[in-house]
Each structure stands twice: as structure tokens, then as C-alpha cells.
């Protein structure tokens, strides 16, 4: 157990704990705030795994933009403040499938990697990732920019019924 392992375990406990709270709490706004904690802990995990650029992009886009959008949606759909008793459906199939997927994948990984150790590679800072991105992955990068534009236009058209439907 090195220092990195201890950090990984601590941050992972925070991430999994707040992730479980996101899907079990009965207060909508708190689910969003627990999501912030979970995504922040995952960003910390990226930092320990030497993925610096991914960690900061995670903080910027997920914690900064996606969670704010989700909280806006909570407010715009007039979600009740406080406890809402009708948030959940019957839980047995969800517990079976979700628990089965999670524990099954965890057992698979544990069996595949046992307790082996690896050396951490050179940190993925902005310079290295940028070089790699614009040398080997330029075409997917450009396709993604087109996809973002399409998603933007699609979101506008979906949310404006006067230009979306042809009645």
C-alpha cells in the first residue's frame, strides 16, 4: 500500500458513497449536490492517476456546466423543495440488475488484476495530451465538433415548438 493507493481508496469511498446517495436520496436538489461531490471525487481520482488535463476538464465541464444545467432543469420543472415521496419505482428489479452489474463487473476486474502493481506513466498534462490529440486523433476531434454543433441546433429545435413542428 503506497500513498497513491491510500488516496485512491479514500477518494473512491467518497465517490461511491456520494454516488449511491445520488440514486437513493429523496430530495431532488440534494441529489444534484451529491452529484457535485461524486464528480469532484472522481476528478481527484484522475489527478492521482496522473491524468491532470482530464481532471481539470472534468471540474470545468461536469462540475461547472453539467451540474448547473441539471439544477436549472430541477428548478424549471418546479420540483418540490424538501422530501418527495414519489420519486422511486418498485426497487427489486433495479437492485437485482444494478447490483448484479456493479458487483459482477467488480468481481471480474478483481479476478483479472488481483493485487498487482503498475508504475504510473508520465503525467498526462496539457502539452502531452494536446500533442497526442492533434497528431493521432484529429479526425475524431473534428467529428466531435460537428456533433456538438448538431446537438446545439437539435436542443434549440426541440425546445422551440414553433420552429420544430410543421403544423
Amino acid at each position: 500500500m503506497t500513498g497513491a493507493d491510500v488516496l485512491l481508496l479514500a477518494l473512491g469511498a467518497v465517490a461511491v458513497g456520494s454516488g449511491v446517495l445520488v440514486v437513493t436520496t429523496d430530495q431532488l436538489v440534494r441529489a444534484g449536490l451529491y452529484l457535485v461531490v461524486c464528480l469532484g471525487a472522481v476528478a481527484g481520482l484522475y489527478l492521482v492517476l496522473t491524468a491532470e488535463l482530464v481532471a481539470w476538464v472534468q471540474v470545468l465541464i461536469y462540475v461547472g456546466a453539467v451540474v448547473v444545467l441539471l439544477l436549472f432543469a430541477v428548478m424549471l420543472t418546479r420540483a418540490p423543495i424538501g422530501r418527495s415521496p414519489d420519486l422511486d419505482r418498485p426497487g427489486l428489479p433495479a437492485v437485482l440488475i444494478g447490483g448484479g452489474a456493479g458487483l459482477g463487473l467488480a468481481a471480474l476486474f478483481a479476478d483479472a488484476f488481483r493485487w498487482s502493481a503498475v508504475e504510473l506513466p508520465a503525467p498526462g498534462n496539457a502539452e502531452r495530451i494536446g500533442t497526442e490529440l492533434f497528431r493521432a486523433w484529429v479526425l475524431p476531434f473534428e467529428v466531435l465538433s460537428v456533433l456538438l454543433l448538431a446537438a446545439l441546433v437539435g436542443a434549440i429545435i426541440v425546445s422551440r415548438p414553433d420552429i420544430g413542428s410543421r403544423s
Binding site: 481508496l9 473512491g12 481520482l45 492517476l49 447490483g99 452489474a101 456493479g102 458487483l103 476486474f109
Partner: peptide, 15 residues
């Protein structure tokens, strides 16, 4: 670094 730790964390988050 033990890679099994973040792998198991990812699996549990997915579940």
C-alpha cells in the same frame, strides 16, 4: 499503484 482499486470503484459507480 494497484490498478484494481480504481477499476473496482468504476464498476461500483456503474452499478
Amino acid at each position: 499503484m494497484r490498478p484494481v482499486i480504481p477499476y473496482v470503484i468504476g464498476a461500483l459507480l456503474f452499478g
